[in-house]
Design a protein around this nucleic acid. Sequence first.
RNA 1: UGGGGUGUAGCCAAGCGGUAAGGCAGCGGCCUUUGGAGCCGCCAUUCGGAGGUUCGAAUCCUCCCGCCCCAGCCA
Length: 567
Amino acid sequence: MKESTAPSNFIRDIIEKDIKNNKNDGRVHTRFPPEPNGYLHIGHAKSICLNFGFAAEHGGLCNLRFDDTNPSKEEAEYVESIMEDVGWLGFDWDDRLYYASDYYEQLYDYAVQLIEAGNAYVCSLSPDEIRQYRGTLTRPGKDSPYRTRPIEENLDMFMRMKAGEFKDGSHVLRAKIDMASPNLNMRDPVIYRILRATHHRTGDRWCIYPMYDFAHCLSDSIEGITHSICTLEFEDHRPLYDWFLDKLGVFHPQQIEFARLNLTYSVISKRKLLELVKLGYVTGWDDPRMPTLAGMRRRGYMPGAIRDFCERIGVAKRESYVDIALLEHCLREELNKRAPRVMAVLRPLRVVIDNYPEDKVEELDAENNPEDPGMGTRKIPFSRALYIEKDDFREDPPKKFFRLSPGREIRLKHAYYIKCTGVVKDEKSGEVVELHCTYDPETRGGWSKDGRMVKGTSHWVSAAHSLEAEVRLYNYLFTKEKPEEEGNGGDFKTWLNPDSLETLTSCRVEPSLAGAKPGSFYQFLRKGYFCVDSVNSSNKALVFNRTVTLRDTWAKIEKAQKNRGSR
RNA sequence: UGGGGUGUAGCCAAGCGGUAAGGCAGCGGCCUUUGGAGCCGCCAUUCGGAGGUUCGAAUCCUCCCGCCCCAGCCA
C-alpha cells in the first residue's frame, strides 16, 4: 500500500483507483502544458507540483509541453523563462520536452479524418455571423448554411485553407456536433482558423492553426498521457475533449479539473500581470513584488518553500483564496533553518560609547545560525562608535518597550551591555541624532557575571567598519485582500499599494557581507530575511531585497496599544 | 427562463453511514543573548438552510438558498 503521508485528495484517489484497476496498464503519465504567452506564476507552481508530483509518486512520468497554437500571442522569450522556472522549482522533464506545434502535421491529418467521416466542415460565415448563429445561454443556436457542404468540397476547401488561398478569417473548419446543445462548447466549435502570424517555432510554414480544444486532447493522446489535469474553467470543455478522441478512435486520456489558486493581496492571472508589466507599474516580470516564479526567485523565495506551500494548500474543486500568510510561513520555515545570521542596521542611529577607548577595536565571536551550530561562527568588529536601529531607541518609552531609552541598559548582541547616558538632538528639528552610552567591560560577549538581566537585545554595527548598502523593502502589491473583486469600477489596479516598495539607501551592514554573491540570502538579525539582488547589486554597491520580515510581536503589541488609545 | 460546478472554523482542507483530522491565522503560557526560533495549551455540540430515511447522517433522499464558470476564429 501507500506509505506516503501525503494528504488525501480527489485526484490522488482517482489515480490510485486507476492503478488498482490496471487502467492504462497501471501507467501514470501527466504533463504540464503552459502556453508560452507570459511568465509562470505561483498558480502554475501548483499545477507543476501536482503534475510532476503525482507522476513521481507513482513511478510515472511528466512531460513539459508548450501549448503553442496561437502564434499571435506567443514568444520564444516565454518558452525560455518557463523552462528555467520549472527547472528552478526542482522538476525534471528529462528528454520529454514537447510542443503542440510538433504535432501540426498529424493534427492536420486528424482534421482531414474528421472531415472524411462527416464530422467536420468548412464554414464560411464571418466571425460575427458565427456568433449570431451560436445562440445564447438560454436559446439554442441554428445550423450554419455551410453545415451541409459536401465532404469532397470540405476536403478541397480545407486543403486550400492550408495552402494559403484565403484571407484570414474568411473560413474556418468546424466540428459538426449539435447547434442546440445546452453546452455552448458543443455548438459546432471552430477547430482551425486561418491566421497569418509568424510562429516562434514553425515560422511562416503554416497559415492555419488548430484551436485549443482540438490540439490539446490530441496532444495528450499522442503523448500517451493518462491523466490530463487542468483547471475548473475547462470542465465545460470535457465533453468536447472526449468527443474528438472518440470520433477519431485514438488513445483516450482522462481530463480532471481542479480549482486554480488565488492568493490574498495578489493578482494571479497572466493577463493582469502582463498589464502591470506593460503599463510600468512594476519593473518587469521578475519584479520582486510579482507573484511570478521569476519575481519570487529574485525576491529570495526558495523553491522548497514554494513546493511545501503547494503541498499544504491541497487540491480540491472549490474556489478558494489562500491567505498569503501561509506562503510566508512556508518561506520563513525554510529560511529560518538555512539563512546565515548577520547584523545590518537599516535606519542607523549613531551611538558613542564614551568609556570605550578611542582607537580600540575588538573582534567578537558571533554564531552564524543558532538553529544550526554546524554553520559555525564569524568575527565582528566592535569599536567606540556604532550604529543601532533608530527604532531601538525611544526617548519616552511606552509600556512594554524593552529597548533602549535614557538611563536604561540593554545588550548589544554578541557584544556588551550598554547604558544610555545622553541624547544629542538636532537643534532645529528636535530629532535624535546621536546617543551617548557607557558599556560594562565585564559583560563581554553579552553575559553578565553578576546575574544582572536586561530585557532587550539590539543588533548593531561598528560605524567605521560597516559597509553602506541599499535595502529594498517590499510590501504587498495590493492594499485589498481580494483585488480582483468588484468595486472601484472593477479595475484591480485601483488597489495597487503606493508603498509596495520602500528603498533605503543609507543602511549599514556588517563587514562580512563584503562581496556577497547575488542571490545569496541572510537573516538580518531581528529584521527579516534578505537576499542580494541578482540584477542591481555589485561589489561596489550592495543592494538587498527584503524577502520577508520576521514575525514581529512588538509591532503587534504596539498596534494593539494604539488601537486601545484611539478608542 | 439553459448547461456545468461548488458550499465543513477568519483562511485552506481531511472526512466516503458509527458520533468533526491537520495546517495557517488568532489567543494564553513557558523558554530565549533575535520581542526570531522552539515548546505547551485554547480555538466547529456542528458541516449553506429546511425536511425526510436510519438505532445512528457532514456523509443517503427531497426541496430551497448562496457562490463560481460558459455565448473568442484565446488558452
